[in-house]
Amino acid sequence: TIKGCVYPQQAEKALSLLTKNTAFNVLLIVQDRNNIEIDEMNPVNTELINILNQQGFEIYDFAGQPDIDPYKIENIIAQRRFISLRSLLSRSLAGATIIGKIRFIYQTRGGQNIGYGISSPFNVVRAQAQYYLLIKNKGRIRILASGTVSAKGMAPNSEDAKNKAMLALAPKLADDILQKIERYMASKRKVVKLYVYGIKSVSDNFAVKKDIQKLPWVKSIKDVGIGKFTVEYLENPIYLANALESILGYKVIDFSPTRIKIKKGG
């Protein structure tokens, strides 16, 4: 085993890092003037869950939890006291949580004078979402990203204007969150050149590639020749070296953060 390295047990379940295996909680509250509620069927909530599912993430909809008080959640978001969520999140299998508040800003009322004696034929409402992307990290809650996104809706009455604003907000919010997730994941990727001695055929090369692809935190592996691979890795490369030894039975004969040389153990 590589000296000084202890390979994490059940590494594929590690929660201090976002990967495609990370499961998400989604909890969005909606504030309309003084009323705050959790509406799990609102278009922003459902669209966000659908898009994350399409990207391959597993989703837990926290909005259906009976013991969640939307007013307490609003207070937690306002004060950024996310440590208060620790007991709630500890009951969840998800490693990450998207928590946020959507509020309505009434900009123009139907019939309102908008200048030069002209009355607005529409109600104009802006839906604004403030969100935080949280992850569990060694028993603590870490803010990984945050953002504010808004969209406008126009309709003859305020209810329809609110609904149109929510429909317009949904894809914008989902895109913003996915960009933050992808940016974080990209910052953690490391490219390692892997040389495997003793491979003599294309079929052997394919079998080795298939085995390595199954290792935790391996995002991708490219075959660049017999016994030569480029591995995109989502953690410290020393974990990759140790996994090659402890899981696949290879012997590491040379190691650096960008290059690993291995051969069959024995």
Rank of each mutant, 00 (worst) to 15 (best):
D176V: 04
I68V: 15
L17E: 10
A243I: 05
I2W: 06
L27S: 11
V252C: 05
I181A: 05
Y106N: 12
K13A: 13
A129R: 03
R80A: 12
P66A: 14
R259A: 09
F82H: 02
V125Y: 10
L167P: 01
L248Q: 09
N35D: 13
L85K: 09
K164N: 13
P216A: 10
D67N: 13
E245F: 06
G100T: 06
Y131R: 04
I143V: 05
P171G: 05
K138Q: 12
N157P: 02
P70I: 07
V224D: 14
G115W: 08
L167M: 12
V6I: 13
T97M: 08
T46D: 10
K214Q: 15
N242M: 11
R81Y: 10
S120M: 02
V6A: 10
R91N: 12
F62R: 08
K261F: 03
A23G: 12
E58K: 13
E235F: 05
R126K: 11
G198C: 07
V252N: 09
S150R: 05
L93V: 04
N35Y: 11
A63F: 06
A129Y: 02
K13H: 12
V196D: 11
A165S: 14
T230Q: 12
R91E: 14
K72A: 06
I143F: 00
G266L: 09
Q112V: 01
S220P: 00
K164V: 08
D61H: 06
V149I: 15
I135L: 13
S256A: 04
V208D: 13
T19Q: 07
R126Y: 02
I99N: 01
I238Q: 14
K200Y: 03
K210W: 02
A207N: 09
R80C: 00
A11M: 14
I99K: 06
A241F: 00
F229T: 03
F255L: 15
Y116C: 01
T97E: 02
V6D: 10
I51C: 01
K263A: 14
V30H: 04
I260C: 05
Y71M: 10
E74R: 06
P156Q: 07
N75A: 14
N75C: 01
A94H: 11
V208A: 15
K20A: 11
K172Y: 03
L215P: 12
N113Y: 09
K101A: 10
K72P: 00
L85R: 07
G115I: 06
R103Y: 14
S187R: 13
E235Q: 12
V125W: 02
D175C: 01
D254F: 04
A145S: 15
K72I: 02
A168F: 03
K180T: 04
L48G: 08
I238H: 07
A155K: 08
G249V: 05
E40N: 05
N75V: 01
F57E: 05
D204E: 15
S203H: 06
L248R: 07
V44S: 08
K209A: 15
I247C: 04
N75Y: 10
G115V: 09
R189N: 10
N137Y: 00
I212Q: 08
D175N: 14
N75T: 12
N25A: 02
A145M: 07
L234M: 15
Y71W: 03
Y195C: 00
I143A: 04
A165K: 11
K193D: 14
T19M: 09
I102V: 05
E74H: 06
A174H: 04
F206P: 00
I212C: 03
